[in-house]
Design a protein around this nucleic acid. Structure first.
Lengths: 100, 100
DNA sequence: TTCTGTTTTGAATGATTTTGTCAAAAATAC
DNA sequence: GTATTTTTGACAAAATCATTCAAAACAGAA
């Protein structure tokens, strides 16, 4: 199960592109892209969408990867991480029903 | 599936206690507690632990409720909320294995 | 080794978000 | 009506997060 950072680094290295090139496309400093690839910084939604376009990745898939990274980050170091995620799932499912 | 706020409001109303009393125990302004109960503010870990003690709720259960609220909040307004939570689960499970 | 290009790091700065305080307004009870 | 409780919003302080930049670290080639 790959993080967004791992995914785009692989893609970039496959194409043998320097950070500079991709960073320019995203209109961000290459230092930021370096950090995003290594999970030290979070991308924002706009950047994820641009990355999907740049690397021809399904946008929704990449957004899910990005969102799930954020969730994992939120429960890092928590003993009940898994339990919390499961309960959150239930809550979201329940909300959906309520909305109908 | 109850939020932490709903849980503690119910408990407080059962005991017919004003916000003031519980807020004093937590050492916070009653305005904050009012917002926590209505989900407008996030409690912090320390407050959740104190709340569990105050209302005689299992601490872990309340922490899971709190954490899952935060997760739900993180994916509010997201179409792929559920998918992201499921992927996050997988990632957490996978991390666990890696750590062994 | 030196040269060249790439990547990483961290300090400094700015921007944004969060947090708490307070008092007034609104709601509720008496 | 008054008294009490709850909610709201403005504001300030604190904390967090994002960005820039330059220097350091790294990798490969000559």
């Amino acid at each position: 199960m790959e993080s967004l950072g791992e995914t785009i680094r692989k893609r970039r290295e496959d194409k043998e592109l320097p950070l500079r090139t991709v960073a320019a496309y995203l209109d961000i400093d290459q230092a930021i892209l370096s950090k995003i690839e290594r999970g030290q910084r979070n991308a924002n939604r706009e950047q994820v969408i641009k990355l999907a376009r740049f690397f021809n990745i399904n946008e929704t898939d990449l957004l899910v990867s990005w969102l799930s990274d954020k969730l994992v980050y939120e429960v890092r170091n928590e003993d009940m991480a898994l339990k919390a995620l499961q309960v959150a799932e239930e809550k979201v499912k329940y909300q959906k029903i309520k909305k109908l």
